[in-house]
Every structure is written in structure tokens, then in C-alpha cells.
Design a protein around this nucleic acid. Structure first.
Lengths: 202, 202
DNA sequence: GTCATAATAGAAACACGTTGCAGTTTCGAA
DNA sequence: TTCGAAACTGCAACGTGTTTCTATTATGAC
């Protein structure tokens, strides 16, 4: 294994950085238009204007590609949403507010959500790094919501808060899967999440 | 659509019932040996001694096949475990006991677990029926554990118990995915589940 | 500027899920 | 028993993820 695939850290020249960007752009565009099935490697390569072999040099599988796209999306969103105080009087209210917003956002681009969620659920250990990043972003978002105004930048949340955030993440992920696979409606998902949040944050 | 696929209810002749059994046996055997990837439709057909087209007549996709296998496994296990009182003094203890047993059982056949879990997470709306069956089995198992000796056959569990069971199912499923995809160890999973159960059942 | 090395393009080939089809067998009704 | 419909077999073919290979182009050391 003399030549590895290019990672986010080790992006060589400007041309390579640009190729990587074009590939992820094409991925998002295709996913947004037709979901997981529409993200076909040949189509991504063509739309990004790279050869198929090059695509595989940058991302060793379709799953890596989609999870990397997910990580970039998360980065973009969280850097935009940034550090605004979460409205709501109780932890439960704040968490529900945040999750409702997130869920609504994902409903707005159902195909993209389906593609990224499926990839996330299918990802194996070789994608653990990217997955972990996404998990941390989610936990941070939730513990911040739980603490509300009491949140202090850099301070460690309590073990219990982390445990609660984790349970809520799990419920949210399950609900997301139910939704993207067409087994539950958006209302089902919202109700289910709200019930769960009020249960663990009572 | 004049000819539908054969469902579990509409199993025609004894020969057809036997074909179905052979197919599911072959599926479990292959999954147990090599996981999701080893369950190849041609291999299943050959091992079950049916033509590929026949396999697809019984199960319209690999996902249907695997989820049906999962449902049968669940049936077998729950009919074996049957109606034995769950040990433990508190709901949390009983639920943890049951989940530990289940988790240990799945670790004992990691490949099979990986295959069935992946199929479950990938299943779309066309598999909703089979999925629903599995979900009900899981919920029943958990509500029974929560109630312990107070459980009465045929009695409806309370809304809160169902909600709790559902949250625990979600956590368990997420943990399972983390484990089968190699992102967490079995100990991680056990700890995580125990924390979650004590949180919602305090 | 030259040259070795790595990166890319382009295209063929492979693997496996899935579909389609022609011929054969099974099965139930008359 | 005979007949027609449904089920089954065997096999070829297609689509898409993945691999592989050769020729070409970009890059960086000297």
C-alpha cells in the first residue's frame, strides 16, 4: 500500500483540493435530486469532470463518499448556525425545539437526507473517523440545548447530560431511518421524538 | 400484477412450505458463515436447491429475504424462551437482564447478526410488514420485562411502558449498528445500553 | 530544461443483485 | 385421465459498484 487515498487533512495541491470539492458538490447535487440510488459513481465522476479511477482515488467507496459529504454538510451548517442561544424554558423544550428545526431542515431535502442517512447506517469501521466527528457534533448540539443559557463554552457537560444526549441521538437516528425508509411519516417522527425527550428529560 | 410473491400466511402446498424453509435455512447458514456479503442470491438458490427465479418468487429482494429470516429467528427464540418469568427485582434490572442475554446471543454469531442488522436498517417501505412484526416482537419482549411478574397475558401495556420500550429499542438498535459496523466493542454496547435503561427506568 | 515519479484519463472487465424468457413440471378442475 | 394454468428450472442479460490496466499528463528535484 504505497499510495493511500487522499484524506481531508492531506489535500495536496490546489488542483486536488478543487477536484475534491467538485466531487463532493456533484455528490450532494445528485443525492439531492434522486437520493441514494441516484448517487452513481459514474455519474458523480462525469459531473465532477474526473475519471472514475480518480474518484476512487479520492474516496475508496460510495459509502466513504457519502459520509464525507455528510461531514461537510454538518460542518457548513454548524458553522452557520454557530453560537446562538437556544429558545425554550426547560431542557426538554429546548431540545425539542432544536430537533424540530433539524428535522424540518432534513424534510426540506428528503432525497439528500435519505442518501446521507443510508450511507451513515451502512458505514463500517473504515469510516469510523468521519462517523465519530458527526457523532460529536450531534452530542455537542444536544448538550448545549439541554443546558441552555447555563452553557459555557469549553466546559465539560456532566456524565448524565452526555448520557441523555446520547439516548436522544439514538432515538433521533432510529426515527430518521424509519422516515427515510418510508416506514413512518414526518408527524410520526416528530411525535415519537417529543415523547422520548419528555421521557428522559422529566 | 397477476402473481404476487408468496407471503408467510399464503404458503400453499407442503412442497412450497418446504421450499420456503430450505431457502431460509440456506440464508441463515450463509449469513452465519460470512455475514451480509456472503448471502448471495445465487448461492442461496443453489444451497436451497431452487432456481434463482424461484427464490425471487418467494422473496422479491435480498433485503426481504434477510428480514424474513430475522423474523423467523425471532419467532424461534421467543417461542423457546416462551413464558418464563424474567429474573430481577426492578424493571431496570429485568430489562438489562433480557438485553444482556440477547446481546450475548448475537455476539455468539456476529456474522449472522451483522447480516440481519444491516438488512433491517436498509429495508424500505416495501418491507414494512415484516419490519413491523419484528418491532412488535421487540416491544412485547420489553414491556413484559418491564412488568415482570405483574405481566398478564393479553393485557395491553400502558402508553408510558410502550414509550419506554420504544426508546430502549431505539438505543439497542443504534448500539447494535455501532457494534456490527465495528465502531464499538461489545463492552461499549453493554455499558451504553445499561446506562440508557437506568436513565429511562429510574 | 530534463527526467523520474505520481496522478489522471479512458476504457475494459469483473461481481453480484435483479429481470426476463423459453421450456418443463406440477397441480387442480372437469 | 386430460387439459390448462401456475410454478419451477436453467440460463442469458442488464445495471451499477468496484478493480485493473495502459497511455497520457502534471509535478517536483536536480
Amino acid at each position: 500500500m504505497t499510495t493511500n487515498s487522499l484524506t481531508a487533512e492531506d489535500l495536496g495541491s490546489a488542483a486536488q483540493r478543487d477536484r475534491r470539492r467538485r466531487i463532493l458538490d456533484a455528490t450532494i447535487a445528485l443525492a439531492s435530486k434522486g437520493g441514494f440510488d441516484a448517487v452513481q459513481m459514474r455519474a458523480v465522476a462525469e459531473q465532477a469532470d474526473v475519471a472514475l479511477g480518480t474518484l476512487y482515488r479520492y474516496f475508496p467507496s460510495k459509502i466513504h463518499l457519502l459520509v464525507s459529504a455528510l461531514a461537510r454538510q454538518f460542518d457548513d451548517t454548524s458553522s452557520m448556525v454557530g453560537r446562538r442561544t437556544v429558545p425554550g424554558d426547560t431542557p426538554a423544550d429546548r431540545v425539542i425545539y432544536v430537533l424540530r428545526r433539524a428535522t424540518r431542515g432534513m424534510q426540506g431535502d428528503a432525497n439528500l437526507t435519505e442518501a446521507l442517512t443510508r450511507a451513515f447506517m451502512f458505514a463500517d469501521a473504515s469510516v469510523a473517523t468521519e462517523i465519530h466527528v458527526v457523532g460529536m457534533q450531534l452530542t455537542t448540539m444536544l448538550t448545549r440545548s439541554i443546558k441552555g443559557d447555563a452553557y459555557v463554552e469549553g466546559e465539560q457537560p456532566s456524565d448524565e447530560d452526555v448520557a441523555i444526549a446520547r439516548v436522544i441521538s439514538d432515538v433521533w437516528l432510529s426515527a430518521l431511518v424509519s422516515w427515510v425508509t418510508g416506514r413512518e411519516t414526518a408527524e410520526d417522527v416528530a411525535d415519537h421524538i417529543e415523547t422520548a425527550v419528555r421521557l428522559v428529560l422529566r
